[in-house]
Design a protein around this nucleic acid. Structure first.
Lengths: 171, 171
DNA sequence: CGTAAAGAAGACCAAAGCAGTCCGGTTTTC
DNA sequence: GAAAACCGGACTGCTTTGGTCTTCTTTACG
Protein backbone atom coordinates (compact mmCIF):
# COMPACT_ATOMS: atom_id res chain seq x y z
CA UNK A 1 0.00 0.00 0.00
CA UNK A 2 2.17 2.83 1.25
CA UNK A 3 -0.76 4.98 0.35
CA UNK A 4 -1.34 8.64 0.93
CA UNK A 5 -4.79 9.76 1.98
CA UNK A 6 -7.54 10.51 -0.47
CA UNK A 7 -7.65 14.05 0.79
CA UNK A 8 -4.07 14.57 -0.23
CA UNK A 9 -4.91 13.18 -3.62
CA UNK A 10 -7.86 15.54 -3.97
CA UNK A 11 -5.77 18.46 -2.83
CA UNK A 12 -3.27 17.75 -5.55
CA UNK A 13 -6.02 17.71 -8.12
CA UNK A 14 -7.36 20.99 -6.83
CA UNK A 15 -4.00 22.63 -6.90
CA UNK A 16 -3.32 21.33 -10.37
CA UNK A 17 -6.58 22.86 -11.51
CA UNK A 18 -5.59 26.16 -9.96
CA UNK A 19 -2.18 25.93 -11.56
CA UNK A 20 -3.79 26.12 -14.98
CA UNK A 21 -4.72 29.73 -14.20
CA UNK A 22 -2.34 30.76 -11.45
CA UNK A 23 -3.29 34.42 -11.32
CA UNK A 24 -7.02 34.09 -11.08
CA UNK A 25 -8.98 33.72 -7.88
CA UNK A 26 -10.79 30.41 -7.62
CA UNK A 27 -13.83 30.05 -5.39
CA UNK A 28 -14.16 26.76 -3.53
CA UNK A 29 -17.52 26.07 -5.10
CA UNK A 30 -16.23 26.71 -8.57
CA UNK A 31 -13.30 24.35 -8.06
CA UNK A 32 -15.69 21.74 -6.79
CA UNK A 33 -17.57 21.96 -10.05
CA UNK A 34 -14.44 21.68 -12.13
CA UNK A 35 -12.89 18.78 -10.26
CA UNK A 36 -15.86 16.69 -9.13
CA UNK A 37 -14.70 16.86 -5.54
CA UNK A 38 -17.52 17.42 -3.05
CA UNK A 39 -17.93 21.06 -2.12
CA UNK A 40 -17.50 20.80 1.67
CA UNK A 41 -14.39 18.75 1.12
CA UNK A 42 -12.96 21.34 -1.22
CA UNK A 43 -13.57 24.02 1.35
CA UNK A 44 -11.91 22.00 4.07
CA UNK A 45 -8.91 21.22 1.95
CA UNK A 46 -8.34 24.75 0.78
CA UNK A 47 -8.43 25.96 4.36
CA UNK A 48 -5.79 23.46 5.30
CA UNK A 49 -3.69 24.37 2.30
CA UNK A 50 -3.93 27.97 3.32
CA UNK A 51 -2.72 27.13 6.79
CA UNK A 52 0.13 25.30 5.16
CA UNK A 53 1.02 28.35 3.13
CA UNK A 54 0.38 26.85 -0.29
CA UNK A 55 -2.54 29.08 -1.21
CA UNK A 56 -3.62 32.59 -0.35
CA UNK A 57 -7.19 33.45 0.39
CA UNK A 58 -9.33 36.47 -0.34
CA UNK A 59 -12.44 36.79 1.75
CA UNK A 60 -15.77 38.36 1.00
CA UNK A 61 -17.80 38.41 -2.16
CA UNK A 62 -15.75 37.57 -5.24
CA UNK A 63 -13.18 36.12 -2.95
CA UNK A 64 -11.47 32.83 -3.43
CA UNK A 65 -8.11 31.15 -3.39
CA UNK A 66 -4.96 31.62 -5.37
CA UNK A 67 -1.65 29.78 -5.42
CA UNK A 68 0.81 31.38 -3.04
CA UNK A 69 3.76 30.53 -5.28
CA UNK A 70 4.37 29.90 -8.93
CA UNK A 71 3.16 26.43 -10.00
CA UNK A 72 6.71 25.38 -10.76
CA UNK A 73 7.71 25.98 -7.15
CA UNK A 74 5.06 23.86 -5.52
CA UNK A 75 5.93 20.18 -5.29
CA UNK A 76 3.86 17.17 -4.40
CA UNK A 77 6.01 16.86 -1.31
CA UNK A 78 4.81 20.29 -0.23
CA UNK A 79 1.21 19.21 -0.58
CA UNK A 80 1.77 16.11 1.51
CA UNK A 81 3.56 18.07 4.19
CA UNK A 82 0.74 20.58 4.35
CA UNK A 83 -1.90 17.91 4.85
CA UNK A 84 -0.20 14.96 6.50
CA UNK A 85 2.85 16.40 8.18
CA UNK A 86 6.46 15.50 7.55
CA UNK A 87 7.22 12.72 5.11
CA UNK A 88 8.22 9.70 7.15
CA UNK A 89 8.10 6.19 5.77
CA UNK A 90 8.71 4.95 9.30
CA UNK A 91 8.78 6.84 12.55
CA UNK A 92 12.39 5.97 13.18
CA UNK A 93 13.32 7.31 9.77
CA UNK A 94 12.76 10.80 11.05
CA UNK A 95 12.61 11.38 14.75
CA UNK A 96 14.96 9.67 17.15
CA UNK A 97 14.03 7.91 20.33
CA UNK A 98 10.86 6.11 21.28
CA UNK A 99 11.90 2.90 19.62
CA UNK A 100 12.80 -0.04 21.82
CA UNK A 101 15.32 -1.33 19.34
CA UNK A 102 16.89 1.93 18.19
CA UNK A 103 20.54 1.16 18.89
CA UNK A 104 21.80 -1.60 16.69
CA UNK A 105 18.62 -1.66 14.64
CA UNK A 106 19.49 -2.97 11.21
CA UNK A 107 16.56 -1.33 9.50
CA UNK A 108 17.10 2.20 10.72
CA UNK A 109 19.82 3.43 8.42
CA UNK A 110 18.36 1.83 5.29
CA UNK A 111 14.97 3.28 6.05
CA UNK A 112 16.50 6.72 6.27
CA UNK A 113 17.99 6.14 2.89
CA UNK A 114 14.68 5.05 1.49
CA UNK A 115 12.91 7.96 3.08
CA UNK A 116 15.29 10.38 1.43
CA UNK A 117 14.78 8.73 -1.94
CA UNK A 118 11.02 8.86 -1.62
CA UNK A 119 11.14 12.49 -0.60
CA UNK A 120 13.34 13.15 -3.57
CA UNK A 121 10.81 11.61 -5.91
CA UNK A 122 8.02 13.66 -4.41
CA UNK A 123 9.97 16.87 -4.68
CA UNK A 124 10.69 16.23 -8.33
CA UNK A 125 7.14 16.79 -9.53
CA UNK A 126 5.51 20.21 -9.44
CA UNK A 127 2.09 21.60 -10.14
CA UNK A 128 3.45 23.05 -13.34
CA UNK A 129 4.20 19.53 -14.54
CA UNK A 130 0.65 18.54 -13.77
CA UNK A 131 -0.89 21.49 -15.47
CA UNK A 132 1.23 20.69 -18.51
CA UNK A 133 0.20 17.05 -18.55
CA UNK A 134 -3.39 18.21 -18.42
CA UNK A 135 -3.19 20.24 -21.60
CA UNK A 136 -1.05 17.67 -23.40
CA UNK A 137 -2.56 15.57 -26.12
CA UNK A 138 -4.78 12.97 -24.46
CA UNK A 139 -3.43 9.49 -24.85
CA UNK A 140 -4.12 6.05 -23.49
CA UNK A 141 -2.74 5.95 -19.95
CA UNK A 142 -0.41 3.08 -20.71
CA UNK A 143 1.56 5.13 -23.13
CA UNK A 144 1.65 8.32 -21.19
CA UNK A 145 5.08 9.38 -22.25
CA UNK A 146 6.68 10.13 -18.92
CA UNK A 147 9.82 8.13 -19.21
CA UNK A 148 13.43 8.06 -18.31
CA UNK A 149 13.51 10.55 -15.53
CA UNK A 150 16.91 10.38 -13.88
CA UNK A 151 16.66 11.32 -10.25
CA UNK A 152 19.81 12.38 -8.54
CA UNK A 153 19.77 11.05 -5.06
CA UNK A 154 21.51 13.01 -2.39
CA UNK A 155 20.25 12.39 1.14
CA UNK A 156 22.62 14.89 2.68
CA UNK A 157 20.84 17.67 0.88
CA UNK A 158 17.27 17.42 2.00
CA UNK A 159 15.86 20.29 -0.09
CA UNK A 160 17.22 19.98 -3.57
CA UNK A 161 13.95 20.97 -5.14
CA UNK A 162 15.05 23.76 -7.36
CA UNK A 163 18.32 22.33 -8.60
CA UNK A 164 17.53 18.72 -9.14
CA UNK A 165 14.45 18.63 -11.29
CA UNK A 166 12.72 15.89 -13.16
CA UNK A 167 12.86 16.29 -16.86
CA UNK A 168 9.53 15.27 -18.20
CA UNK A 169 10.07 14.43 -21.76
CA UNK A 170 7.17 14.14 -24.09
CA UNK A 171 7.32 13.08 -27.65
CA UNK B 1 2.93 11.02 6.52
CA UNK B 2 3.02 8.47 3.72
CA UNK B 3 3.76 5.94 6.40
CA UNK B 4 3.90 2.19 6.18
CA UNK B 5 2.41 0.16 8.99
CA UNK B 6 4.33 -0.74 12.13
CA UNK B 7 3.94 -4.38 11.28
CA UNK B 8 5.79 -3.87 8.04
CA UNK B 9 8.51 -2.12 9.94
CA UNK B 10 8.76 -4.98 12.41
CA UNK B 11 8.78 -7.51 9.62
CA UNK B 12 11.74 -5.78 8.06
CA UNK B 13 13.60 -5.90 11.34
CA UNK B 14 12.82 -9.58 11.72
CA UNK B 15 14.00 -10.39 8.23
CA UNK B 16 17.13 -8.37 8.70
CA UNK B 17 17.87 -10.36 11.82
CA UNK B 18 17.36 -13.57 9.91
CA UNK B 19 19.54 -12.31 7.10
CA UNK B 20 22.50 -12.24 9.48
CA UNK B 21 22.38 -16.06 9.53
CA UNK B 22 20.50 -16.98 6.38
CA UNK B 23 21.02 -20.75 6.61
CA UNK B 24 19.92 -21.30 10.17
CA UNK B 25 16.37 -21.95 11.29
CA UNK B 26 15.00 -19.24 13.51
CA UNK B 27 12.15 -19.97 15.90
CA UNK B 28 9.56 -17.24 16.31
CA UNK B 29 10.17 -17.02 20.03
CA UNK B 30 13.88 -16.74 19.59
CA UNK B 31 13.49 -13.91 17.08
CA UNK B 32 11.18 -12.17 19.49
CA UNK B 33 13.93 -12.22 22.09
CA UNK B 34 16.51 -10.89 19.69
CA UNK B 35 14.42 -8.09 18.22
CA UNK B 36 12.24 -6.94 21.13
CA UNK B 37 9.11 -7.48 19.08
CA UNK B 38 6.26 -9.10 21.04
CA UNK B 39 6.10 -12.84 20.56
CA UNK B 40 2.53 -13.15 19.21
CA UNK B 41 3.27 -10.39 16.76
CA UNK B 42 6.38 -12.14 15.55
CA UNK B 43 4.40 -15.31 15.01
CA UNK B 44 1.74 -13.49 13.08
CA UNK B 45 4.22 -11.69 10.90
CA UNK B 46 6.24 -14.76 10.04
CA UNK B 47 3.09 -16.55 9.03
CA UNK B 48 2.20 -13.74 6.69
CA UNK B 49 5.69 -13.62 5.30
CA UNK B 50 5.50 -17.31 4.62
CA UNK B 51 2.27 -16.84 2.75
CA UNK B 52 4.00 -14.16 0.76
CA UNK B 53 6.82 -16.52 -0.09
CA UNK B 54 9.58 -14.62 1.65
CA UNK B 55 10.35 -17.25 4.26
CA UNK B 56 10.10 -21.01 4.44
CA UNK B 57 8.85 -22.79 7.52
CA UNK B 58 9.80 -26.03 9.21
CA UNK B 59 7.24 -27.44 11.59
CA UNK B 60 7.62 -29.53 14.66
CA UNK B 61 10.17 -29.41 17.43
CA UNK B 62 13.34 -27.60 16.41
CA UNK B 63 11.37 -26.07 13.61
CA UNK B 64 11.43 -22.45 12.66
CA UNK B 65 11.72 -20.07 9.74
CA UNK B 66 14.38 -19.48 7.18
CA UNK B 67 14.70 -16.97 4.36
CA UNK B 68 13.32 -18.38 1.14
CA UNK B 69 15.86 -16.48 -0.97
CA UNK B 70 19.32 -15.11 -0.50
CA UNK B 71 19.30 -11.87 1.53
CA UNK B 72 20.54 -9.94 -1.46
CA UNK B 73 17.46 -10.93 -3.44
CA UNK B 74 14.86 -9.78 -0.95
CA UNK B 75 14.01 -6.10 -1.19
CA UNK B 76 12.03 -3.83 1.08
CA UNK B 77 9.47 -3.59 -1.70
CA UNK B 78 8.97 -7.35 -1.42
CA UNK B 79 8.30 -7.05 2.29
CA UNK B 80 5.75 -4.32 1.77
CA UNK B 81 4.01 -6.28 -0.95
CA UNK B 82 3.83 -9.36 1.25
CA UNK B 83 2.18 -7.46 4.09
CA UNK B 84 0.31 -4.56 2.57
CA UNK B 85 -0.32 -5.54 -1.00
CA UNK B 86 0.86 -3.77 -4.13
CA UNK B 87 2.70 -0.50 -3.77
CA UNK B 88 0.32 2.27 -4.73
CA UNK B 89 0.81 5.86 -3.65
CA UNK B 90 -2.68 6.55 -4.91
CA UNK B 91 -5.33 4.18 -6.14
CA UNK B 92 -5.36 5.71 -9.59
CA UNK B 93 -1.61 5.24 -9.86
CA UNK B 94 -2.16 1.54 -10.25
CA UNK B 95 -5.59 0.31 -11.16
CA UNK B 96 -7.77 2.05 -13.69
CA UNK B 97 -11.38 2.96 -13.30
CA UNK B 98 -13.35 3.80 -10.20
CA UNK B 99 -12.27 7.41 -10.21
CA UNK B 100 -14.84 10.03 -11.08
CA UNK B 101 -12.23 12.28 -12.62
CA UNK B 102 -10.11 9.73 -14.42
CA UNK B 103 -10.16 11.16 -17.92
CA UNK B 104 -8.40 14.47 -18.09
CA UNK B 105 -7.15 14.17 -14.53
CA UNK B 106 -4.00 16.23 -14.25
CA UNK B 107 -2.63 14.30 -11.31
CA UNK B 108 -2.88 10.83 -12.74
CA UNK B 109 0.15 10.66 -14.97
CA UNK B 110 2.47 12.42 -12.52
CA UNK B 111 1.36 10.13 -9.73
CA UNK B 112 2.24 7.13 -11.83
CA UNK B 113 5.63 8.62 -12.31
CA UNK B 114 6.03 9.17 -8.60
CA UNK B 115 4.80 5.70 -7.83
CA UNK B 116 7.40 4.20 -10.09
CA UNK B 117 10.13 6.26 -8.47
CA UNK B 118 9.05 5.24 -5.00
CA UNK B 119 8.92 1.60 -6.00
CA UNK B 120 12.36 2.00 -7.45
CA UNK B 121 13.71 3.31 -4.18
CA UNK B 122 12.15 0.46 -2.26
CA UNK B 123 13.56 -2.13 -4.60
CA UNK B 124 17.01 -0.71 -4.26
CA UNK B 125 17.54 -1.83 -0.68
CA UNK B 126 17.87 -5.49 0.24
CA UNK B 127 18.12 -7.48 3.43
CA UNK B 128 21.78 -7.97 2.70
CA UNK B 129 22.28 -4.23 2.90
CA UNK B 130 20.57 -4.20 6.26
CA UNK B 131 22.54 -7.08 7.66
CA UNK B 132 25.68 -5.29 6.54
CA UNK B 133 24.71 -2.03 8.15
CA UNK B 134 24.09 -3.96 11.32
CA UNK B 135 27.59 -5.31 11.59
CA UNK B 136 29.18 -2.07 10.42
CA UNK B 137 31.00 0.13 12.88
CA UNK B 138 28.38 1.86 15.00
CA UNK B 139 28.27 5.59 14.38
CA UNK B 140 26.08 8.49 15.30
CA UNK B 141 22.93 8.28 13.18
CA UNK B 142 23.48 11.69 11.64
CA UNK B 143 26.62 10.58 9.94
CA UNK B 144 25.46 7.22 8.81
CA UNK B 145 27.40 7.20 5.60
CA UNK B 146 24.76 6.20 3.13
CA UNK B 147 25.24 8.83 0.50
CA UNK B 148 25.04 9.53 -3.15
CA UNK B 149 22.98 6.64 -4.34
CA UNK B 150 22.11 7.28 -7.96
CA UNK B 151 18.80 5.71 -8.80
CA UNK B 152 18.09 5.08 -12.42
CA UNK B 153 14.50 5.74 -13.01
CA UNK B 154 12.75 3.77 -15.66
CA UNK B 155 9.01 3.40 -15.23
CA UNK B 156 8.62 1.20 -18.25
CA UNK B 157 10.69 -1.45 -16.56
CA UNK B 158 8.86 -2.18 -13.35
CA UNK B 159 11.18 -4.85 -11.98
CA UNK B 160 14.72 -3.65 -12.33
CA UNK B 161 15.73 -5.04 -8.97
CA UNK B 162 18.71 -7.06 -9.93
CA UNK B 163 20.27 -4.71 -12.47
CA UNK B 164 19.80 -1.36 -10.91
CA UNK B 165 21.19 -1.57 -7.45
CA UNK B 166 21.97 0.99 -4.83
CA UNK B 167 25.62 1.38 -4.15
CA UNK B 168 26.01 1.82 -0.47
CA UNK B 169 29.30 3.48 0.01
CA UNK B 170 30.88 3.59 3.40
CA UNK B 171 34.02 5.35 4.30
C1' DC C 1 -26.56 50.53 4.60
C1' DG C 2 -28.22 46.03 3.81
C1' DT C 3 -27.76 41.82 1.54
C1' DA C 4 -25.41 38.23 -0.69
C1' DA C 5 -21.21 35.87 -1.64
C1' DA C 6 -17.50 34.21 -0.12
C1' DG C 7 -13.95 32.24 3.47
C1' DA C 8 -12.76 30.81 8.83
C1' DA C 9 -13.10 27.85 12.55
C1' DG C 10 -14.26 24.02 14.62
C1' DA C 11 -17.50 20.38 16.27
C1' DC C 12 -19.14 16.13 15.03
C1' DC C 13 -19.91 11.35 13.33
C1' DA C 14 -19.60 7.09 10.77
C1' DA C 15 -16.68 3.81 8.76
C1' DA C 16 -12.60 1.59 7.90
C1' DG C 17 -8.05 -0.02 8.85
C1' DC C 18 -4.61 -1.41 12.09
C1' DA C 19 -2.33 -3.49 16.02
C1' DG C 20 -2.36 -6.85 19.01
C1' DT C 21 -3.96 -11.05 21.44
C1' DC C 22 -5.73 -15.55 21.95
C1' DC C 23 -7.31 -20.08 20.91
C1' DG C 24 -7.59 -24.81 19.21
C1' DG C 25 -5.31 -27.70 15.85
C1' DT C 26 -1.42 -30.13 13.46
C1' DT C 27 3.22 -31.59 12.67
C1' DT C 28 7.71 -33.21 14.09
C1' DT C 29 11.36 -34.63 17.25
C1' DC C 30 13.06 -37.06 21.09
C1' DG D 1 3.47 -39.68 24.12
C1' DA D 2 4.95 -35.30 25.46
C1' DA D 3 7.01 -31.14 24.25
C1' DA D 4 8.25 -27.75 20.83
C1' DA D 5 7.12 -25.56 17.03
C1' DC D 6 4.21 -23.80 13.26
C1' DC D 7 -0.99 -23.13 11.20
C1' DG D 8 -5.14 -20.88 10.64
C1' DG D 9 -8.22 -18.18 12.21
C1' DA D 10 -11.31 -15.22 15.06
C1' DC D 11 -11.78 -11.48 17.78
C1' DT D 12 -11.45 -6.91 19.88
C1' DG D 13 -10.18 -2.16 21.02
C1' DC D 14 -8.35 1.72 19.10
C1' DT D 15 -6.88 5.20 16.11
C1' DT D 16 -7.21 7.42 11.83
C1' DT D 17 -9.68 9.00 8.06
C1' DG D 18 -13.23 10.87 5.27
C1' DG D 19 -16.91 13.63 5.12
C1' DT D 20 -20.65 16.81 6.72
C1' DC D 21 -22.73 20.51 9.29
C1' DT D 22 -23.15 24.83 11.80
C1' DT D 23 -21.98 29.34 13.09
C1' DC D 24 -19.30 33.35 12.47
C1' DT D 25 -16.61 36.96 9.96
C1' DT D 26 -15.29 39.54 6.02
C1' DT D 27 -16.03 41.96 1.69
C1' DA D 28 -18.39 43.64 -2.61
C1' DC D 29 -22.11 45.84 -4.64
C1' DG D 30 -26.48 47.89 -5.40
Amino acid sequence: MLKLGKLTDYATVLLAAMAAEPERLHAALELSGRTSVAAPTVAKLLKQLQKGGLVQSARGAHGGYRLARAPGLVTVADVIRALEGPIAVTDCAVHDGGCAIEVGCAARAPFRLINAAVTQALEAVTLADMAASLSATPRRPAEVPLTEVPILFHPANSRPTSQVRAHVRRR
